[in-house]
Nucleic acid binder design. Structure first.
Length: 200
DNA sequence: CGGAAGATTTCT
DNA sequence: GAAATCTTCCGA
């Protein structure tokens, strides 16, 4: 299990280092896990794309004001949950969005939850992987350093295998929309498909 | 207190 | 290319 100090760095370092790590959720139906293959960093007060950019510390982003290592989960478009890892020290509201995962354990259970047979379409998007891994609003604020939802070491990646691009669907964010804060694993089939305009 | 819009997914 | 669907935030 990754320890607290892994998370106490700026969100870009955490986002890049999360690639190749494993996300594990122990459920009643069984253990569900996968390899993180795509992430995005959100840098709070310096980042017009971040939820914590202008929001009040009492609102939905309140967990981001604690130190790193907690789960920040929100509902988007009224129907999909997105899972983020809180990064950095207390009072610096940063987070890393997990955008795609390569299924590992409990694949049959994930297929049922998603009503989907194609393994490459199980967890290839932030809303999809929450559905597949059984993550929802009840996990908001969960401590990822102990419990049934946690991250762990898995494979060591060469720095050549880590690519960056612009982040997805943040057209409203002014110049922040062009920051290269999306990270993904080169040639990995489980990374979500994105339009060409996001690539460098 | 009402309205608009969103770190998306799915189906046509 | 559009619909589905609801919480949060902002302006009045």
């Amino acid at each position: 299990m990754l320890k607290k100090n892994f998370y106490l760095r700026n969100a870009n370092e955490v986002a890049s280092d999360l690639l190749g790590k494993k996300i594990v959720h122990i459920t009643e139906a069984g253990s569900l896990s996968g390899i993180i293959v795509e992430t995005e960093a959100y840098l709070g007060l310096k980042d017009a794309a971040a939820h914590s950019y202008k929001a009040s510390p009492d609102g939905r982003t309140n967990i981001q004001y604690k130190e790193g290592g907690y789960a920040y989960i929100y509902l988007i478009y009224g129907m999909h949950y997105c899972f983020n890892v809180v990064a950095n020290i207390a009072d610096i509201p940063e987070a890393v969005l997990i955008r795609a995962v390569e299924p590992l354990d409990g694949i049959e259970i994930m297929k049922e939850k998603r009503n989907m047979d194609n393994i490459h379409n199980l967890c290839s998007g932030p809303g999809k992987l929450c559905k597949a891994l059984g993550i929802d609003k009840s996990h908001y604020g969960t401590d990822l350093c102990g419990g049934k939802l946690y991250l762990d070491n898995h494979v060591m990646l060469d720095s050549d295998d880590i690519l960056t691009s612009k982040r997805i669907n943040i057209e409203y964010a002014g110049e922040a929309k062009d920051y290269l804060w999306r990270y993904y694993i080169r040639n990995n089939k489980f990374v979500s498909k994105v339009p060409l305009k996001y690539l460098v």
